[in-house]
Computed example of a mutant assay.
Amino acid sequence: MQQLEQEIKELIISSLALEDLSPQDIDPAAPLFVDGLGLDSIDALELGLALQKRYGVAMSADSEETRRHFGSVRALAAFVQNAGAQKP
């Protein structure tokens, strides 16, 4: 799971052009939105597309479940891992 968290941190940095951050700067348990990393709704859309492209996961844009998945890097990693485990 740590490897997946690392990959997601790198994906966040590259897909959102956060060149001033390194993966080590991102706490995997910290919130991604408002507090923590401070991302906004546009960032969420871009990150969602990057996750879909890289891992083949699909998310509903306005669901409460999706908001939970985007709570932190750790939550995203768990979602990606579980989604991958459910594929045939």
Rank of each mutant, 00 (worst) to 15 (best):
Q2P: 00
Q3G: 03
L4V: 03
L4Y: 03
Q6S: 13
E7H: 07
I8Y: 01
E10V: 07
L11Y: 06
L11G: 10
I13C: 10
S14V: 09
L16S: 01
L16H: 04
L16G: 04
A17V: 00
L18H: 04
E19R: 01
E19T: 06
E19L: 05
D20Y: 00
L21P: 06
S22I: 11
S22W: 06
Q24G: 11
I26G: 14
D27F: 02
D27T: 02
P28L: 12
P28T: 15
P28Q: 12
A29R: 12
A29N: 13
A29D: 15
P31H: 04
L32F: 00
F33P: 01
G36T: 01
G36P: 02
G36A: 00
L39P: 04
D40I: 07
S41K: 11
S41Y: 13
D43W: 03
D43M: 05
D43S: 10
A44N: 08
A44H: 13
A44S: 14
L45W: 11
E46N: 09
L47I: 09
L47S: 06
L51I: 10
L51G: 09
L51Q: 09
Q52M: 11
K53A: 10
K53W: 05
R54L: 09
G56S: 13
G56K: 14
V57K: 08
V57A: 10
A58M: 12
A61V: 09
S63A: 11
S63M: 07
S63V: 07
E64D: 15
T66R: 13
T66Y: 11
R67F: 11
R68G: 12
R68I: 13
G71H: 07
G71E: 10
S72H: 05
S72L: 00
S72M: 02
V73M: 07
V73D: 07
A75V: 04
L76E: 10
A77V: 05
A83Q: 13
G84V: 02
G84T: 07
A85K: 11
A85P: 01
K87I: 13
K87N: 12
P88H: 01
P88Q: 03
